[in-house]
């Protein structure tokens, strides 16, 4: 029963997702969605939510989370044009390799968010996580050492994620 708070928190987003997917506020749909949301939340044991998830509504975290969205969009656009350029160029200017970077993030969800953000920006792809080190495949290795690679890849995201999930 110690999962109960997580399960209760998980029901909300699941129900909202159902409403968005069906696109109707018909009472029948709402009840059906509520039942399905409860079932899914119980089956998943409330994962990946926990009482700590509610901290996102603290003003400072919420503001950083909002600011993170445009930052992420901009990073994706810039990186996409960069990779597109490498694909089109006849000589293909690539210098691939796997580098190690370090993260200061402690929570599993925070690390998941960091790994996903790194993977979403083309040019870098998280291959593995071991402890506080991430192994990242980089299409154009600019820094081979841990410090340089961390500065280049991780720190931009970490500034936001530290506040949001820290």
């Amino acid at each position: 029963m110690q999962r109960l708070p997580s399960i209760l928190i998980a029901i909300g987003p699941l129900w909202l997702l159902w409403i968005a997917l069906t696109g109707s506020t018909d009472p029948e749909e709402l009840v059906a969605g509520g039942i399905v949301a409860v079932l899914v939340a119980v089956l998943a044991g409330g994962e990946p939510f926990s009482p700590a998830s509610l901290k996102i509504f603290q003003p400072r975290r919420f503001a950083y989370a909002l600011a993170y969205i445009p930052y992420m969009i901009w990073a994706i656009i810039v990186a996409n044009f960069d990779v597109a350029r490498r694909v089109i160029a006849p000589k293909m200017p690539i210098r691939p390799g796997i580098v190690t970077v370090k993260t200061k993030l402690k929570t599993p969800v925070g690390r998941l968010a960091l790994a996903n953000s790194i993977t979403l920006t083309p040019g870098t792809l998280t291959v593995d996580i071991c402890g506080d080190e991430l192994c990242i495949h980089w299409i154009y290795v600019a820094h081979e050492d841990i410090e340089g690679a961390t500065r280049e890849i991780v720190e931009g995201f970490e500034k936001y994620l530290e506040v949001i999930f820290g």
Binding site: I76, N80, V87, I94, P122, V127, I139
Partner: peptide, 15 residues
């Protein structure tokens, strides 16, 4: 190679 294909293939397509 596979890893570079993944870089361009599965992620240039997200945008």
């Amino acid at each position: 190679d596979l890893y570079n294909r993944m870089q361009t293939g599965t992620k240039a397509t997200t945008l």
